[in-house]
């Protein structure tokens, strides 16, 4: 009998607020703001005075923009026409910034949701004694921990990704509608350079890569969650902090610290995400492989501790 689907469902039942409602509300807010913005543009009721100056250091371009008592529709029209005149790669660059910055908020929230899920998933049931119920059923400790790992690394990111995709499509549609009435080719101006399909492929790759890259961190969270008798968050932060300080005092180096920065703060995966799928970062590297091994060891230890876990 395959227990995995029900074990995943169980996690969803317990955490549907953060797994589903949270990204859904974020997505609704985003779309609401978009619609409000485009309504404000189209209605032409808002008159503004803008006196903007933009300096781009990269290619020494200076843009000056002045508008006195113009409607947003006029300003948007000027903007979109100017945008349409730019080269394809320039448009690609601008849209990359727009789509990246509107998507990244989802990934930041996702990161916090996963981290706190892992910290508590093997701790909360010991604290509220419901472990005595879960352990009275024929589910192995390995299945229990692995199901939680799959939830955190695949199920929850997939849900957040789905809402990110909805946001991307909404942005694409709303910006296209807003641009109607201007003499521009919407597909080549707004759709093609946005490359949202390619972007989604990148997101999927990013989620898979970050899952392996950060496996030591996630495995560490599971181990503490399975082991700690109190305050798992304090142990999660405290032990690495202590190691870092000891390393600094006695060896003066920061190898461990650099490792934490890389694999916890997602420095490398973020760079990879920002630069897109054409990034030069080698995904298949010794460090990725080492992360996988270390992560599997830590998850294995978490499973072993779960075998001895009791109510607190």
């Amino acid at each position: 009998m395959n227990q995995l689907p029900m074990l995943l469902k169980r996690e969803y039942w317990e955490h549907r607020t953060t797994f589903l409602y949270l990204p859904a509300i974020m997505s609704m807010l985003f779309i609401g703001i978009l619609l409000f913005g485009s309504f404000a543009i189209q209605s032409g009721v808002v008159n503004v005075s803008i006196d903007s100056e933009r300096h781009q250091d990269g290619n020494h371009q200076t843009e000056e923009f002045k508008a006195e008592g113009a409607s947003l529709l006029e300003i948007f029209g000027q903007r979109i026409n100017r945008f349409a005149d730019q080269s394809f790669s320039e448009r690609e660059q601008v849209l990359n910034q727009v789509y990246y910055s509107t998507s990244v908020i989802m990934f930041v929230v996702l990161w916090f949701v996963i981290v706190f899920y892992f910290i508590n998933c093997l701790y909360d049931d010991r604290k509220d004694r419901s472990i005595l119920f879960w352990k009275s059923l024929p589910v192995s400790d390995t299945m229990t921990v692995v199901s939680k790992l799959i939830v955190g690394l695949i199920v929850v990111p997939t849900i957040f990704l789905a809402f990110t995709m909805i946001n991307n499509v909404a942005l694409l549609l709303v910006s296209s509608i807003a641009a109607l009435g201007n003499d521009i080719d919407i597909f080549s101006t707004l759709w093609a350079p946005a490359n949202i399909i390619g972007r989604w492929v990148t997101f999927v790759g990013y989620i898979l890569f970050a899952g392996i890259w950060c496996l030591p961190f996630f495995g560490w969270l599971l181990l503490i969650s399975s082991w700690a008798k109190s305050a798992p968050l304090a142990w999660v932060v405290g032990i690495p902090l202590l190691i870092t300080i000891v390393e600094r005092i006695f060896t003066g180096s920061g190898v461990v610290r650099a490792f934490f920065m890389d694999h916890v703060a997602l420095r490398q995966p973020v760079v990879w995400l920002q630069d897109g799928y054409g990034s030069e970062l080698s995904v298949v590297s010794m460090q990725t492989f080492a992360s996988l091994i270390l992560g599997v060891v830590l998850v294995g230890l978490a499973i072993w501790r779960r075998g001895y876990a009791d109510e607190l």
Partner: peptide, 24 residues
């Protein structure tokens, strides 16, 4: 064990569905 061990967030119908899928 004594009354306090059923997880507080679990719905009655979810408990039935869960054990149905888990326990042969």
């Amino acid at each position: 064990s004594d009354v306090g061990v059923l997880p507080r967030w679990l719905r009655a119908r979810e408990a039935v569905a869960y054990i149905d899928a888990i326990h042969p």
